[in-house]
Design a protein around this nucleic acid. Sequence first.
DNA 1: TTGAATGCAAACTTTTTGCAAAATT
DNA 2: AATTTTGCAAAAAGTTTGCATTCAA
Lengths: 140, 140
Amino acid sequence: MQTAAAKTFRELCAEHGIAVTHQRQVLYEVMQGMSGHPSPEEVYARVKKKIPAISLATVYKNINLFVESGVFRKMSMHHGSVRVEMNSEAHHHMVCSKCKAITDIGEQELGLVSKRTRLPGGFLVERYAVDVIGLCPKCQ
Amino acid sequence: MQTAAAKTFRELCAEHGIAVTHQRQVLYEVMQGMSGHPSPEEVYARVKKKIPAISLATVYKNINLFVESGVFRKMSMHHGSVRVEMNSEAHHHMVCSKCKAITDIGEQELGLVSKRTRLPGGFLVERYAVDVIGLCPKCQ
DNA sequence: TTGAATGCAAACTTTTTGCAAAATT
DNA sequence: AATTTTGCAAAAAGTTTGCATTCAA
């Protein structure tokens, strides 16, 4: 009964030129079954229930691999350290997916339209923080 | 000629009930003069030129203080660890400013309009990643 | 003089790395 | 048989904390 799923995972690995290991497969399946935005530690805790001997390093290595391959995504651009900004004008950010450079863009220039202050589920909007992901002129 | 600036900084400190120290003032001025999105280490490097004996811990403590006071801002919600997501539908995030809970919201429901693929400065858009900051139903 | 802030070092958290042993191709 | 992956432990990064000393109010 694992034939179908196993095959899909095999194909996925073949596409990305990576080996099909037991750890990798279980990690993939566990992650597929998780909703929300888990941290590596949370993923590790779940995988450990199925493979008690797995190491955190393996979890990290494979999460990175999955993210680099585009199988899963990071929730947001993660710069190693906190970034502060002094610009107090209402603005958003253009983030280059290649060189990671961040450039400000004014609310006006961005031209996103939405004045809604209440969203489905009853969420009360304070403000929008937009990251535009793309390629800066240099990297195009 | 530091009367005006010094006075403003004094007032700022008074407003927030914090002491006016030399380190604090230089840090504030240096940060005001920085554009972009510096990390604490970058700020530290700059401040060190003016106060070579300053410690990194002081820089951290004061940056945190400034951010908590609303004097400066963090560039983005910073969760201690990387967050991965498996949801491959086009969606965005509602982030509660009180309890920090993150909920997905579909591109459709969000209803932000912008089909622009080229932004001022020649930035080529791949996709938009929107964080809606506000209050979730529970926290309102 | 009293409480707050600084500097230093140690501790902590998150993530990466080197390497021998094991598994995959 | 060659290569990749794993697990472990050590090392990096980034950030916070405890405490004695110094400074501001």
